[in-house]
């Protein structure tokens, strides 16, 4: 893990309010694994003060890290105005990544909104055709085309809340349909990232079916390093200590270790 001023190679709009930024960060890129994140210093002065956490969406040409982000507030609004050639301090790669599926597993990737970012990275290092990938968005204009983010050829099934693209409804319905098709010869393993209500539903489905599932979570973060203890999240009651720290123990967790009722 390092902190490095990184040149912005591009920063382009890929869907409504959604951008992909490419940062030249050779040392971060060399270490990064799917599920890990970086802390970006987006403010130039004292406001906003803290770094912002973003999942690594991919690595390109060995030295470029890709970040997919949506404008939701002050920091991301500043980010979308960044120009090619400017630079930005990147701290990372941080956190634990996904535990890779084993031979014979049937991976199912389930994304909600920007939760697609770490799953695109995960998909990019798996055998094409060896997994299913479901992504939910609000509407068609929010849909991130995967060739836009440099992952062409990903076979993605889309759902939208309003039915303007793909399945009309929740992405977890696509997951349930897919699970219903399993015959017991292969074991499905689920990888999920997205808004909390979606993850709760994924947790309910996979816990109920006793399926292996890893989720990538978010929390408010100050340091990203395990130093401030700001990013606490409740462990399930079977665990000895009450809290995990998302930045260090996560952001990827086995669905069994968390207290979903307290999230």
């Amino acid at each position: 893990m390092i902190e490095q001023d990184s040149e912005i190679i591009f920063n382009k709009r890929v869907a409504v309010d959604t951008f992909l930024i490419g940062l030249k960060s050779p040392l971060v890129a060399a270490e990064a694994r799917p599920g890990q994140f970086v802390m970006l210093k987006v403010g130039r002065g004292m406001d906003p003060l803290l770094r912002r956490p973003f999942s690594i969406c991919g690595i390109r040409e060995e030295n470029l890290i890709l970040i997919l982000y949506r404008i939701v507030g002050q920091g991301t609004r500043i980010m979308c105005d960044f120009r090619k050639g400017e630079s930005l301090s990147v701290l990372g790669p941080l956190g634990s990544g996904f535990e890779m599926p084993h031979k014979g597993d049937m991976p199912i990737l389930v994304a909600g909104g920007m939760g697609i970012a770490p799953l695109i990275f995960l998909a990019s290092i798996m055998e094409p055709g060896s997994f299913s990938f479901f992504a939910g968005f609000g509407s068609a204009k929010e849909v991130v085309a995967t060739d836009e983010v440099g992952s062409s050829g990903l076979d993605l099934s889309i759902s939208t809340d309003d039915g303007s693209a793909g399945h009309r409804g929740l992405v977890t319905e696509l997951l349930e349909n897919r699970l219903a098709g399993f015959d017991g010869k292969t074991s499905p393993v689920v990888f999920a990232c997205g808004p909390l209500p979606m993850l709760k539903e994924v947790a309910a489905i996979t816990l109920d079916g006793v399926l292996s599932c890893q989720v990538s979570l978010e929390a408010s973060m100050a340091c990203g390093l395990g130093a401030c203890q700001g990013c606490a999240i409740r462990r399930s009651s079977e665990q000895a200590i009450a809290y995990y720290h998302v930045c260090q123990d996560g952001p990827v967790f086995d669905v069994n270790v968390l207290d979903w009722g307290a999230l």
Partner: peptide, 23 residues
């Protein structure tokens, strides 16, 4: 000490509030 329930931190203008609870 386990500390306080989350959310424990929030950013404010030119600063932040923390209620880590001395974990």
């Amino acid at each position: 000490r386990e500390g306080n329930p989350p959310p424990r931190i929030v950013e404010t203008p030119c600063g932040m509030l923390n209620a880590i609870g001395l974990a």
